[in-house]
Nucleic acid binder design. Structure first.
Length: 482
RNA sequence: GCUUCUUUAGCUCAGUUGGUUAGAGCAUCUGACUGUUAAUCAGAGGGUCCGGGGUUCAAGUCCCUGAAGGAGCGCCA
């Protein structure tokens, strides 16, 4: 008989014989067998009549064992669940020695997230990580569905790149050269002509430049792939290997780009709200419980569901960087000297400033545009200087409650001469980016796009506060376990 | 990379001005109970106090040093 997934054991199936396979969460009183199969956060209770069951079989049913039970699905006599399985027969597919289990996070106890992280290979079995990774899947699917439904083409940009012009951070070198007796030229420098690709290569830090090439032919494209940064970043928001989403659209200006970013984020959050109700309810409760343990001043003002609705129900407030600086300069916390970092035109905003704008001042998600050219990347389109002669670029950052910046994008510099000059200014040799400059020579057109770290989105939607807990196997400085 | 905190039983932690045999809850095991759902009750086992060095009659406790982890900052997505 084919197994039925727990998610499909609904009231309509009452009276039917079913086979359920999964892992034992708990076995109480030799009678109540709680099973989860990963299809949902919800468990099924299988009721065993221990008087008619083989006692030696029952002894092998321990926490974390894999079992197959068959029996009739009935309305539950107890209160905690609507249906349960009256067991006819049980097969233990894989045992789990309780003494050995003590060494693992599968022992039926609360564990800290740090402990769970050390056993990332087993943490999928926990309620929290089951929920997180089901939500992660739903969001990944929503990304593809959103773009596909709107006629975007999924472009696979290279993972090994021969260009180090993205300037987005330190890169991981890809090489087959030996560590000893590395071939060197007359000046003693490594001779990469002997390397596998015949040149210096690295893991990609961004697919954006390549995505622009695609957009300048296919019209609208997006990338969604792994990205690597060799930065020694020790924070709860950075990974050495993460997944990035980068749409790029020909003929879009900054306003179109903002429309796209806002619509996309609302779509993804909505999709999770609709598709992951049980998981999000669990994560919500989990966060509420955790918040209770914190002192008042460290608590989140908005709980998880509030924050998700905050994004879905509000139009995003749009203003320029210059306007934002004015708002901040006139704000109460600034006048009362509550901000830790100074506010001044030309410096990047700190997360305390971003959070003030979103959570206190506008009380809605915020899109900041037109940042000072000096603090943004070379490929962003240069605006006309303002009356004070200050140079800005057509950039946009979307700010969310709790997390601050969730997305960054811009209209790209489409003018060949301006782009060439900005490359020179940024110290990028022309021979490195000749292919990128070519699109500005042959039928250039305005275009725009953005980038968003997928894990940041998963963090926002699940409420997890450490990025290592929203990717199955995190890669961080000094850690590549599993 | 910087600042700061943490490291004691399988897990989460307590451990007083340095002083006899290092404790609790949960988990595990044994038994009782058997419509429970954080089950309950009784009992048992379980320790290289993160590693190294030092001070002292005496160190889980004080000092130095190393490692791992957390939080914050920088960099950024």
């Amino acid at each position: 008989m084919k197994r039925t997934k727990i998610i499909d054991l609904t009231g309509e199936k009452i009276g039917q014989e079913v086979v359920v396979k999964g892992w034992v969460k708990q076995f109480r009183q030799n009678r109540f067998l709680i099973i989860n199969d990963g299809s949902t956060i919800n468990n099924i209770q299988a009721v065993v009549d221990h008087e008619t069951m083989d006692a030696s079989l029952l002894e092998t049913i321990t926490t974390a064992a894999a079992v197959s039970v068959s029996g009739q699905l009935v309305e539950s006599q107890g209160r905690g669940q609507s249906v349960e399985v009256l067991v006819n027969s049980i097969e233990v597919l894989g045992t789990a020695d309780p003494e050995a289990l003590q060494e693992t996070i599968l022992q039926p106890k609360r564990h800290t997230l740090e402990r769970l992280r050390e056993q990332a290979h087993l943490r999928f079995r926990t309620n929290t990580f089951g929920a997180v990774f089901r939500v992660r899947h739903a969001l990944a699917f929503a990304v593809h569905k959103y773009f596909n439904d709107r006629g975007y083409f999924y472009l696979h940009t290279p993972i090994v790149t021969g260009s180090d012009a993205e300037g987005a951070g330190e890169m991981f070198r890809v090489t087959t050269l030996p560590f000893n007796d590395t071939p060197r030229d007359e000046d003693g420098k490594v001779d990469f002509s002997e390397d596998f690709f015949g040149k210096e290569t690295n893991l990609t830090v961004s697919g954006q430049l390549e995505a622009e090439l695609g957009a300048m032919a296919l019209g609208q494209v997006y990338t969604f792939g792994p990205t690597f940064r060799a930065e020694n970043s020790n924070t709860s928001r950075h990974l050495a290997e993460f997944w990035m989403i980068e749409p790029e659209v020909a003929f879009n200006d900054l306003n179109d780009n903002m429309d796209l970013g806002e619509d996309f984020l609302q779509y993804c959050v909505n999709y999770a709200l609709e598709q992951c109700k049980d998981d999000l309810a669990f994560l919500h409760d989990r966060e509420v419980q955790a918040e209770k343990q914190k002192p008042q001043n460290e608590r989140n003002e908005l709980n998880l569901m509030d924050r998700l609705k905050f994004v879905v129900d509000n139009d995003f407030e749009r203003l320029t960087y210059t306007q934002a600086i004015d708002v901040l300069l006139n704000s109460k916390p600034h006048k009362k000297k509550k901000f830790k970092y100074p506010i001044e035109w030309g410096v990047d905003l700190q997360s305390e400033h971003e959070r003030f704008l979103v959570e206190k001042h506008f009380k809605k998600p915020v899109i900041l545009t037109d940042y000072p050219a000096k603090i943004k990347a070379f490929y962003m389109r240069l605006n006309d200087a303002d009356e004070q002669g200050r140079e800005t670029v057509a950039a946009m950052d979307i700010l969310f409650p709790g997390v601050g910046e969730i997305m960054g994008g811009s209209q790209r510099e489409e003018r060949y001469d301006v782009l060439k000059a900005k490359c020179a200014e940024a110290g990028i040799p022309e021979e490195e980016v000749w292919w990128y400059l070519d699109t500005r020579k042959f039928g250039t057109a305005i275009h725009a796009g953005f980038g968003l770290g997928f894990e940041r989105l998963v963090m926002f939607v699940t409420g997890m506060t450490n990025i290592r807990d929203v990717i199955p196997f995190p890669r961080t400085p000094k850690n590549a376990e599993f």
